[in-house]
Simulated scan of single mutants.
Amino acid sequence: MDQERELPLALRAAYMALHRCTEAKFASHGVTADQFVLLLALEETGTLTQRELADRISSDPSTVRAMLVLLEKNGFVRRASHPTDSRAKTVELTATGKRTLRKLWKVGQSIRDDMYGAITPKEAEILIRLLRLIPNSLSKEKTLV
């Protein structure tokens, strides 16, 4: 097996399978898989700036902004001026956003069950640790371009 070729293919296949399943489960709730990740990041960390949120979910600020506009229109998030930085906006979940996230978490449980059914808890721990190494190593590439 040529690991240099297989790793990108395997990562893409895993991501796409997760994304497709999540999109299908959440479609009737009016939330995309990417929006779910954004809501989850806000729930974990509380109030963030839009920039911090983009960094937290490994996305670009313009994509995050577009998602936030839709989520705010649906009443899931609240954006406000940053108290000390006039150029920044802070973002937090609303009560509706928190309720929606709890519902989506339950709806997505079967996906997580399937993923965790394919590997042991120890393998999951190792996989998470290894996957977290990749963005850090690739961020060095960005500075070289």
Rank of each mutant, 00 (worst) to 15 (best):
A24E: 13
R56W: 03
V107K: 13
L40P: 02
S139N: 07
L104G: 00
Q35C: 03
A41S: 10
Y15N: 07
A27W: 03
G117M: 01
R5Q: 14
A14F: 08
R20D: 13
I128D: 11
L40Y: 09
L93G: 01
E52D: 15
Y116A: 06
A27R: 11
T94G: 06
L9W: 04
A95G: 09
L48C: 05
Q50Y: 04
A95K: 15
R56C: 08
K140Y: 09
A14C: 06
T49L: 03
I111D: 00
D85P: 01
V31W: 00
E125C: 10
T22N: 03
T120A: 02
L70M: 09
S110A: 09
P8F: 01
L53I: 02
E52H: 10
V69S: 08
Y15G: 06
S137C: 10
S62P: 03
C21E: 15
L144D: 02
T22G: 06
E6D: 14
K73W: 06
T47E: 15
L93Q: 02
V64G: 02
M16L: 15
D55A: 14
F36G: 00
K25F: 10
E43M: 11
G46V: 03
S137I: 13
W105K: 15
L7V: 09
K103P: 02
I119D: 01
R99M: 08
P83L: 03
L70Y: 05
T63E: 10
R20I: 09
A24P: 03
T96Y: 06
G108M: 00
T84I: 07
K142V: 14
E125Q: 14
R132L: 13
I119H: 05
V145P: 11
L133S: 08
K25H: 14
S139M: 07
M1A: 13
A17S: 10
S137N: 10
I111P: 01
R65E: 11
I57N: 01
T49V: 03
I134Q: 04
V77T: 10
A10E: 11
A54D: 00
R65M: 08
